[in-house]
Design a protein around this nucleic acid. Structure first.
Length: 329
DNA sequence: TCCAGATCGTCTCGTGCCCC
DNA sequence: GGGGCACGAGACGATCTGGA
């Protein structure tokens, strides 16, 4: 909190000239506990007006509609102008705060105080992603490194190889670095960035596994029209049976990317089915293209494991443990 | 050595899709 | 309808490259 206030003072001094001291607001006792817990309250005189600063302590950014409601609760009976203060605000939330005419300050970069006629919208740095579940593109980069190549990779090469834009690869690198799964090096800012996985693949997998998600976005039982080939490699229980001694399911499971699913819908190349009907297959729509890592018409074992990891069936869980032991490292 | 164009990564915003 | 997520487009800045 001290750090934010000091940054705020410096920012106001640099942008508006003189700034008297910021002092604690002593009347917060009547506020609900959740507001006192979440915010620090401070008074500030600026251009002859009294401002009441609500300094957001939370790691999580509330939607602007929620902030407006919280400000309404604080505002009851106060004559000061309420100003929302937060160290980082995403572009999306900033836009909506302005649309909602909510005065706010992001110390060091942003200020919107319409009542004082102040509207500084400057460049502001995007906070580095927090350590959390990886996005599909970051997961695809990691799986590429685990299965195909972990040599130094740069965003442009990987974008071509995996079918993403360079910018998406740049973001994926940020995520993998934030998750401490790799290091990226660059000569100077942003130039010639390359990603390097320095730990053995088995350790990398162990470290990454909690951050990985199922690639399956949704599943649809379908009948393909006559003459149509399955639109992707075999996955799900069909692939698990192929990689193990598990008996095959009654239906074929096929994995395809979102693009494949869209093109199937556009060309009306299928009809809805009920599992168990003759010729019905289960189409899994994946968040990344399964064919990127597929071999001989089967999805890769890592993605397969992730796609079935949450299955309750005990036989499947036992087989997945066996599959894990056969991973290629 | 200088400089202009090329290359590459980042920043910010917009869009489409989905969920609640 | 509001909000979140994933990703692309365009603009921009830093650095590289090669010719004068």
């Amino acid at each position: 909190m001290k750090q934010v206030l000091s940054k705020l003072e410096t920012y106001l001094r640099d942008t508006l000239g003189s700034v008297p001291g910021i002092r604690a607001w002593k009347e917060e006792g009547h506020l609900p506990f959740f507001l006192r817990d979440r915010y620090g309250f401070f008074l500030l005189k600026l251009h002859g007006k009294s401002l009441l600063l609500m300094v957001d302590r939370s790691q999580n950014e509330d939607p602007p509609a929620a902030i407006r409601k919280q400000m309404e609760l604080v505002k009851k009976g106060q004559k000061e102008i309420l100003v929302y203060v937060r160290e980082h605000i995403t572009a999306y939330h900033r836009k909506r705060l302005v649309e909602n005419k909510i005065p706010f300050v992001v110390p060091g970069s942003q200020m919107y105080l319409p009542i004082l006629g102040v509207d500084f919208r400057e460049h502001y740095p995007k906070p580095r992603p927090q350590k959390g579940a990886l996005s599909p593109s970051a997961q695809a980069v990691l799986i590429h490194a685990l299965l195909q190549s972990s040599e130094d990779l740069n965003p442009t090469k990987l974008a071509k190889r995996l079918g993403y834009s360079v910018m998406t690869m740049s973001r994926a690198f940020d995520e993998l670095e934030a998750a401490e799964l790799c290091q990226s090096s660059s000569r100077g800012r942003g130039k010639d960035r390359s990603l390097c996985f320095q730990i053995p693949k088995q350790d990398l997998w162990t470290q990454a596994e909690p951050l990985l998600r199922t690639p399956v976005k949704s599943r649809f039982p379908i009948h393909l029209n006559p003459g149509k080939e399955p639109p992707g490699p075999k996955g799900g229980l069909t692939a698990l049976a192929h990689f193990s001694m598990l008996s095959e399911p009654d239906y074929l499971v096929v994995a395809g990317s979102l693009g494949v699913w869209k093109s199937l819908r556009q060309t009306e190349a299928f009809s809805q089915a009920i599992l168990g009907e003759e010729g019905a297959l289960m189409l899994e729509v994946w968040t990344y293209a399964p064919e990127l890592f597929a071999r001989d018409g089967w999805v890769d074992p890592l993605s397969l494991y992730l796609s079935l990891r949450d299955t309750k069936d005990e036989r499947v869980q036992i087989t997945l443990e066996q599959l894990k032991k056969a991973f290629p490292w």
